[in-house]
Design a protein around this nucleic acid. Structure first.
Lengths: 159, 159
DNA sequence: GCCATTTCAATCCAAATGGATCAATGTTGC
DNA sequence: GCAACATTGATCCATTTGGATTGAAATGGC
């Protein structure tokens, strides 16, 4: 059966919304992850962390998790990698000795500019099928889902 | 800074669409993946494969990749796990000795029913913030993105 | 002030991942 | 018909992952 036919059937089932989201993300990740690793020699979570640190100078590692919900040690390693590369510096927090405040360096800002530009282009490509009105609607609805009460905590799938 | 404030800022940036999609998926995966592993003792890609095999009896391993774009060996291992568990059987294709046609067993169908039910409930939970009209629009737009020409092949991020 | 508890981030290590290779089978060109 | 090439799916193995633990620092109860 052709790929199109397979997709059409899956996207007509009960789980269509989960399926379509999963498909978009698996498909996009295959492209994006490999590219970023090849060109920038860092895992995606490192660039995510760099983006967060640049947007919020002085952010703490644990706060990055609020933006990119990944395991704690993943962030820890990403931060450590960014520091090794000289893209960020860590300054112990004045108010709490356990915390480290994170800041981008000039080198970090420079590499981030490239990362952002290529990501922005990729975003245009990905959303190419939508008109600008559709795109705005899509974002609005996705934001509602993202900020909904049950995204991170499920009653159905409670652990 | 509060988690809400952080998100608000990120969702106001240039990369807002990528950020919101990434946030939804990372957040949902943290919940879903752990639950499925604990309750069903299988990785997510195994249940995806089971779902595909049940929807398309006789599907080949390579075709599953069209539905769930994962590395080939990931599918291969998932299929092997499902067979070990007795959830599927493999029958060598009559027309091509390399191919194996995949079929669910009764045990496979039974466990899949539970998986589908809990996934459907999770889907309702996740999409709870949307009205049914919004939900239909969201799906339609997501499907456009999913079936767009550049999802799996990027000009910007060509490897 | 002191001990128990909590919180932050680093590290440990068993398990999973995925790019690369391989073996088996099919297809093509001649 | 056969040699070169392509395709399917399994396996290899170096790297990554993430749950669990640890260590260090802060907080709370009394």
């Amino acid at each position: 059966m052709s790929a199109d036919k397979l997709l059409e059937t899956i996207f007509a089932g009960n789980l269509r919304e989960l399926m379509v989201i999963s498909y978009i993300v698996l498909g996009n990740n295959a492209v994006t992850t490999r590219y970023i690793e090849r060109r920038f020699h860092m895992p995606v979570q490192a660039w995510s962390a760099l983006y967060a640190i640049d947007k919020f100078p002085g952010i703490r590692a644990k706060e990055i998790r609020h933006l990119f919900p990944r395991p704690q040690n993943t962030i820890s390693r990403a931060v450590s990698l960014l520091e090794t590369r000289g893209f960020i510096v860590q300054k112990p927090s004045a108010s709490d000795g356990r915390e480290k405040r994170l800041f981008t360096t000039e080198a970090g800002t420079a590499v981030l500019a490239d990362l952002i530009e290529v990501s922005r282009q990729r975003q245009e490509e990905l959303l190419g099928p939508l008109s600008s009105e559709e795109r705005a609607v899509f974002f609005e609805l996705a934001q509602k889902i993202a900020t909904g009460p049950d995204l991170l905590r499920s009653a159905v799938m409670r652990s």
